[in-house]
């Protein structure tokens, strides 16, 4: 194998590694709150991968759910969408507002599991 081919192979490998790690929220440390325009609180602390490892979550749709007619679809998941695709800043069509959706998804589960932050300042850290 010539040296050039080897370099190209490595370059492609590194490129794939970088893009894939970017796509899988490898470095996500907080919730993107830019959709709120003028957010009232600091963005919620959230380390995606560390959280899921810590909580022992294997199924994406535990958080990335899909609801139809008020019922959660057991085998559907929505990790290819933004939360704000369904949950707008103001509540619409019976779907909770974005703020409420975040709070219910995070705090609701934390209260059920009796683990994880539930007070305002435990996520919205100054």
């Amino acid at each position: 194998m010539s040296k050039t081919v080897l370099v190209i192979k490595w370059a492609v490998f590194i490129l794939i590694f970088i893009t894939s790690s970017a796509l899988c929220q490898y470095d996500m440390v907080e919730i993107d709150n830019s959709v709120f325009g003028d957010p009232a609180r600091p963005p919620s602390v959230f380390e995606h991968d560390a959280h899921n490892e810590n909580a022992g979550l294997d199924e994406c749709n535990i958080c990335h759910h899909v609801y139809e007619d008020g019922k959660k679809l057991e085998y559907e998941s929505s990790e290819d969408m933004y939360c704000s695709d369904c949950h707008s800043v103001k509540s619409e069509n019976g779907s909770p507002s974005l703020r409420k959706a975040f709070h219910m998804n995070c705090k609701g589960c934390h209260l059920e599991q009796k683990a994880g932050p539930v007070l305002c300042g435990e996520c919205h850290r100054k």
Binding site: A40, R41, S97, R99, K100, H103, M104, K107, C120
Partner: peptide, 15 residues
């Protein structure tokens, strides 16, 4: 207070 309204919203769906 915003943080109180958030609690009313979560508990009673009013805001």
């Amino acid at each position: 207070l915003l943080s109180h309204i958030v609690l009313w919203d979560e508990a009673w769906n009013i805001t």
